[in-house]
Design a protein around this nucleic acid. Structure first.
Lengths: 245, 245
DNA sequence: CGAGCACTTGACAGGAGTCAATTGCGGTGG
DNA sequence: CCACCGCAATTGACTCCTGTCAAGTGCTCG
């Protein structure tokens, strides 16, 4: 592949002070000395689709910041079953839970698209936290949000049908992956396979395929490869919203 | 009830520096000024079984530390379904996720047994965190652990049968609620109702009753009201452990 | 004693998992 | 250029676990 010849694992230098995604992330509050320490110490790594960023059970070396691309966090149990815990996007931080919680990674991170990730090691992180107490708060807020989402995922797996969960997923994907939309019609470019959708909803690929078929029969959504067209968002919404008792 | 006449909502003073559970909690690192600030500022509240400590959606006023008793954290969705997110025991902290993550509580806390809880308000917490950076780390580690457990709960609901999940639950309860055991026989005093066990496993009370019946038929566990007897732990374990492929 | 709740049990239906076969697509190599 | 391989996706057939509805029991409390 021509592109693979041009691919370089370690990026040429990226300037943190000019980094757009930094401002939306935990690192947005850094200034002066701290910012230049971050800039000097970080390691910028490029990943191709499907490549592993870190692996569940392995030693946690630091914290990762996504500059570009979409990353999937997966978790496996003892029997080899695996779920997709969540998707992470540019500007978001990875591995903070593992870094603060224990020595090893509780999940695996895999780049879904071509991605660029900055790795911030322990020795960099420590002085940054000492100089910026606000940074603690940022990570706490992030973790608290992760926890809230995980608890909501438990509720949704326990009580909602696969069909309803899939509709919720489409709604969530719309906010980030919706393309040009014409007169109320919504077009979403799915960032993952059916298999991953199944892993995200805690079900199996076959069930996803069947549910997709049902949605198409009902005219709620039309799937074609990695693209979904939702002709009428209201129809989708009205099926999601809890009926009054 | 005679006891209810003696019940007092606000406790007479408890001395933090003599508090045994404090040493196992986040507050164990506090010394001197900070410790006496905590001691002066905390509010000690007693709860009877079933009483609410805080409610999902309400404003988060601070952080809670359990001195005595067992507390259930519940979460409800828009349709009124509710799960029991986790149990919390003496020495554990409540509400830290909500305090750092947002303005309102993402779960409700309800005392299952007679409990005593210390409330630490925002104005107390702020100076404590400023003087003790380690405290940040403690809360981060606690949240990271909560998150890890929540993710494992998702895995278990998605892939394990109710029967297997119930066995896992018994195993977890054994560590904390197992009473006097004679020659390998394990006796557990359940701290909750069947309904709560169902809410903890993401299923319904009827299914719990049926699964309990099946376990008794198989001689794995004998339920009698709030007591479980497990005659052979190995039989239970061998059903849980993943079979080799 | 009656009300209410926790728990149990039965009958029943349906959603979702499993196994298996088939199709379609993209990449590889001859 | 085309055959072949591997993987994603689909579809069918079938099972059964689990939720739902309903009735009944036993206990506690007022």
């Amino acid at each position: 592949m021509a592109e693979s010849e041009r691919f370089s694992r370690i990026s040429s230098r990226l300037d943190c002070s000019a980094c757009k995604v930094r401002r939306c992330s935990e690192w947005g509050i850094l200034r002066g000395q701290d910012l230049s320490l971050l800039d000097r110490s970080k390691v910028v790594i490029n990943y191709r689709p499907g490549e592993s960023i870190y692996t569940q059970g392995c030693l946690c070396q630091g914290i990762y910041c996504i500059v570009r691309g979409t990353v999937a966090l997966r978790k496996m149990d003892a029997m080899g079953h695996s779920i997709l815990v969540r998707l992470a996007h540019a500007g978001q931080t990875l591995g903070h839970g593992d870094y603060f919680g224990g020595e090893s990674h509780a999940t695996s991170a895999e780049s879904l698209t071509a991605s660029t990730v900055c790795q911030i090691g322990r020795n960099t992180l420590r002085p940054l936290l000492e100089h910026n107490p606000t940074l603690w708060l940022k990570f706490l807020a992030h973790l608290a949000d992760d926890l809230r989402r995980a608890e909501e995922a438990i509720l949704s797996i326990a009580f909602l049908s696969v069909r309803t969960r899939l509709l919720h997923l489409l709604l969530a994907l719309k906010n980030r992956y919706a393309g040009a939309q014409e007169e109320g019609t919504i077009v979403i470019a799915l960032p993952m396979t059916r298999k991953d959708m199944a892993a995200l909803l805690g079900t199996r690929p076959e069930t996803i395929a069947r549910t997709i078929h049902a949605l198409e029969s009902d005219g709620i959504a039309a799937f074609s490869g990695g693209t979904v067209v939702i002709p009428d968002l209201n129809a989708l919404m009205s099926e999601i919203e809890p009926r009054k008792a």
